[in-house]
Simulated assay, not measured.
Amino acid sequence: MKKILVLGGTRFFGKKLVERLTKAGHEVTIVTRGKSEVPFDSHVSHIKVDRLDEAAFRGALEGQWDLVYDNICYSPNEAKVLCEILEGKTQKLIFTSTLSTYEIDGRVKKEEDFDPFHYEIKMGDQTEFSYGEGKRQAEAVFFKYASFPVVAVRFPIVMGEEDYTRRLHFHTEKVKKEEAMSFINMDAKMSFILAAEAAEFLEWAGFSDIEGPFNATAKGAISLRDLLSLVEKATGKQAIITLEEDNAVEKSPYAIPNDWYMTPEKAEKAGFEFSELSSWLPELVAKIAK
């Protein structure tokens, strides 16, 4: 049994991670601001604190943990403070990063396409960076300042019926209501991962001997055109799509100009086997459409 700290962990794949860890018999403590309901019994400890309140955050994290998961770090400032807090207090950190660390340039992304070890660090808080740049800066800080092993897990968009962002739901609802959606390039391909598999990979990353950045994605990619075809099949209706800027038409959260997907080859060589995107995406679209 290990003592594990999870920053975040009440929703979506973070919740599934905590469920996996507790089922395996580990002693889990979650850290949240207390704004979301805690969906666990008393067997999961809960520290209620806002990490942006640095003094309170430092005071709240006084224990020792074998393993720490950080699902809610979005800036270099947050990463630096956590490195300082965890000095001598943990054996490993798993940081939830993102496909957004990579440029949308049409090339299949490998880990070396963003090198956090030689990236120029510019300290600041969340408000000073885009989502992708905040994650790039956080990775760079963790790998420079942490005195313990760090894994940066780069996820694409995570999918699931419980997705609170409702990005896939957006498309099924628009098609069912026969409302238009705006895109940029319907032939652009994307990669995704299922929430349960994301949680499984996070658990595996914590207990394996890997370090450094790792892509974590289902194998394969799908064009937005083919994704909308799945939605049309599931709803029995035709999608109304525009490729022109129109303030009266909501833009798809998947509206990208070029291919934007990555390969999980590095992680698979390290021993983790990912699912095929095509093996679960049609079923998920059908479930959400209902």
Rank of each mutant, 00 (worst) to 15 (best):
K2P: 01
K2C: 02
I4P: 04
L7A: 00
G8N: 07
G8A: 09
T10E: 07
K15L: 15
E19R: 06
G25L: 06
E27G: 04
V28R: 02
I30G: 03
G34T: 09
E37L: 14
V38W: 08
H43C: 14
H43G: 11
V44Q: 06
S45L: 07
I47A: 05
K48T: 14
K48A: 13
V49S: 01
V49K: 00
L52Q: 08
L52F: 10
D53V: 05
L61Y: 03
L61Q: 01
Q64W: 13
L67K: 03
V68K: 04
Y69Q: 11
I72H: 00
A79I: 12
V81T: 15
V81Y: 09
C83T: 15
E84D: 15
L86I: 13
E87C: 15
K89T: 04
K89H: 07
Q91H: 12
K92E: 13
L93C: 12
T96P: 06
L99N: 10
S100C: 14
Y102N: 00
V108N: 01
K110C: 01
K110L: 08
E111Y: 08
D113G: 02
F114P: 07
H118P: 08
H118F: 14
Y119S: 04
K122W: 07
G124V: 01
D125L: 08
Q126V: 14
Q126S: 11
T127G: 02
G134K: 05
G134A: 05
K135I: 05
R136C: 07
R136D: 06
R136L: 11
F142S: 08
K144G: 05
A146R: 06
S147A: 13
A152P: 12
I157M: 10
M159C: 09
G160S: 09
E161S: 11
E162C: 08
D163G: 09
Y164S: 08
T165Y: 09
R166H: 10
R166I: 06
T172G: 03
E178P: 03
S182Y: 13
N185M: 12
D187E: 15
A188P: 10
M190Y: 01
A195K: 00
A198N: 06
A198S: 11
E200I: 11
L202H: 04
G206S: 10
F207M: 00
F207R: 03
S208I: 09
S208E: 08
E211K: 14
P213W: 03
F214Q: 09
A218C: 01
G220I: 00
L224S: 00
R225W: 05
D226N: 06
L228Q: 03
L228C: 05
L230R: 01
V231I: 08
E232W: 07
G236N: 02
G236T: 03
K237N: 02
Q238I: 14
I240L: 15
I241S: 07
T242S: 13
T242Q: 05
L243V: 01
D246W: 05
K251P: 09
K251C: 10
K251I: 11
S252M: 09
P253A: 15
N258D: 13
W260V: 08
W260Y: 15
T263P: 02
P264T: 00
P264S: 00
P264M: 00
A267Y: 07
A267P: 14
K269E: 13
E273Y: 13
L277H: 00
W280R: 06
P282G: 01
E283L: 15
E283P: 11
V285K: 00
A286M: 08
K290E: 15
K290L: 15
